[in-house]
C-alpha cells in the first residue's frame, strides 16, 4: 500500500473577488492556499473542517472541475493541471465524485438505467453488449433491485437517490472517488446505512477515496487518515484514532472537543472555539489560526508555520508550538 495515487503540491485555488473597471480582480478569495497532500492507492482519506474553509474546493480542484491558480495535481503520475478537455477526457472516468445533494445530482428526466448506462458508456473499455447486465450488477452493489432501474429519480427516497449516485460513481470502475459531504443531507439513520455501504464497498472493491465532511464522527467511521483543513490550508494530517486520542494542532483539539458523545449520563461541556472563521479574502498574518488560538505567542502572529512531517507514519502538522503542547484524551 505504498503506491502514491494522488499528489498535490502547493495547490492554490483562488477565485477573483471584486473586479475593477479594467476587469482585473481587486482581491482574491483564497479558497485553497498552499495545499500539499498525498493520497495512497487503497487509502481512505478524510477531509475535515468548518464550512467555508475550502474543503469542497480542494476536492473539486483535485478532480479538475475547478482549475487551480498555481501548484500541481498529479494523478497516477500524470500532471493534470495543464491538460485541455481532450487530454483530460481519458482521466475523467477514472476519477468520480459523489455530491452532497442527491436530488440535484440526478437528471429528473432520466431513469436510473439511463443514468447508469451513460456512466458505463463513459468508460472507454466498457463491454458494449451487456450494459443492462452491468447496470443490474451496479444496482445490486448498492442494495437496489433490478426493477428500480426503470424508475425516475423522483420515485426514490433521498437515501436511495444517494445510492444511485454511488452506483454511478462506481460504474466506470474508478481509481479514485471524492465523496463531498455525501451523507450530510440525509437523516441520521439513512446516513448510517450509506456509511455502512461505503465501508462494505471499500472492502469489496479496494476503493481509494477522499471523504469530505464537517463531521469528525462520520470521518472516523470510513477513513484511516484524516486531514484537517482551516482557512484554506491543511493544518494537520493524522491517523483517525490518533486524531481523537492525541490531536497535535490546537484547532484539531477544538474540533474534537466539539464532537458530542452519545451518552446521556456523561457530563459534557462543549467547548467551542472562540472567535469567527477568518475571511478567505484577507486571512490573518502568521498562523491563520492564531487569533482564535489559546496558545498563540508572538511568533505565531508573525511567521507562517510550515507543514512539517511528524515522526509518525504519514502524519503532518502546521503549528509552531506543537512540541510544547500535549493534548491527550482528556477533554477540557
Amino acid at each position: 500500500m505504498g503506491e502514491v495515487l494522488i499528489r498535490t503540491q502547493s495547490l492554490r485555488t483562488w477565485f477573483p473577488k471584486r473586479k475593477s473597471l479594467l476587469g482585473k480582480p481587486g482581491a482574491w478569495l483564497k479558497a485553497v492556499d498552499d495545499v500539499s497532500l498525498t493520497i495512497y492507492r487503497g487509502e481512505c482519506l478524510g477531509l475535515a473542517g468548518e464550512s467555508g474553509c475550502g474543503k469542497s474546493t480542494l476536492g473539486r480542484t483535485i478532480l479538475q472541475l475547478v482549475k487551480p491558480r498555481s501548484g500541481s495535481v498529479r494523478f497516477d503520475g500524470t500532471a493534470l493541471r495543464n491538460l485541455d478537455f481532450r487530454q483530460l477526457q481519458p482521466f475523467r472516468p477514472r476519477m468520480q465524485m459523489v455530491f452532497q445533494d442527491p436530488r440535484s445530482s440526478l437528471n429528473p428526466k432520466m431513469t436510473m438505467l439511463k443514468i447508469l448506462a451513460e456512466a458505463i458508456r463513459a468508460n472507454p473499455d466498457h463491454d458494449g453488449d451487456s450494459i443492462l447486465d452491468q447496470a443490474v450488477e451496479l444496482a445490486d452493489m448498492v442494495d437496489l433491485r433490478p426493477e428500480h432501474l426503470f424508475r425516475y429519480p423522483h420515485e426514490f427516497s433521498g437515501g436511495q437517490q444517494q445510492r444511485i449516485c454511488i452506483a454511478r460513481a462506481l460504474a466506470t470502475c474508478p481509481d479514485f472517488i471524492v465523496f463531498d459531504e455525501s451523507t450530510s443531507a440525509l437523516d441520521v439513520s439513512v446516513q448510517a446505512q450509506i456509511l455502512n455501504l461505503i465501508k462494505r464497498l471499500k472492502q469489496r472493491l479496494g476503493l481509494t477515496y477522499l471523504f469530505i465532511s464537517h463531521d469528525l464522527n462520520v470521518l472516523a467511521q470510513v477513513c484511516e487518515r484524516i486531514a484537517v483543513m482551516y482557512a484554506g490550508q491543511i493544518v494537520e494530517i493524522q491517523e483517525s484514532g490518533r486524531l481523537f486520542s492525541s490531536p497535535g494542532h490546537p484547532y484539531t483539539r477544538g474540533l474534537r472537543d466539539a464532537v458530542p458523545i452519545a451518552d446521556p449520563e456523561a457530563k459534557q461541556t462543549f467547548v467551542s472555539i472562540k472567535g469567527e472563521v477568518p475571511s478567505l479574502v484577507d486571512p490573518p498574518a502568521g498562523c491563520r489560526f492564531h487569533p482564535r488560538c489559546d496558545f498563540a505567542d508572538r511568533l505565531c502572529a508573525t511567521r507562517v508555520p510550515e507543514l512539517q512531517r511528524l515522526e509518525r507514519h504519514r502524519s503532518w502538522i502546521r503549528c509552531h508550538r506543537y512540541r510544547q503542547l500535549n493534548f491527550n484524551q482528556e477533554r477540557r
Binding site: L65, P93, M97, F99, S104, P108, E118, A119, A122, C165
Partner: peptide
C-alpha cells in the same frame, strides 16, 4: 449549476452532449 451537469462532466462528456442530453429535455 445543477449537480447532474457536473456529474456528466466528471464522466468526460462534452458541452454539446450535456446541452442536448441533459439541459434541453429539462
Amino acid at each position: 449549476r445543477m449537480l447532474f451537469v457536473e456529474a456528466a462532466q466528471m464522466l468526460g462528456y462534452g458541452k454539446s452532449y450535456i446541452l442536448f442530453r441533459h439541459l434541453l429535455p429539462n
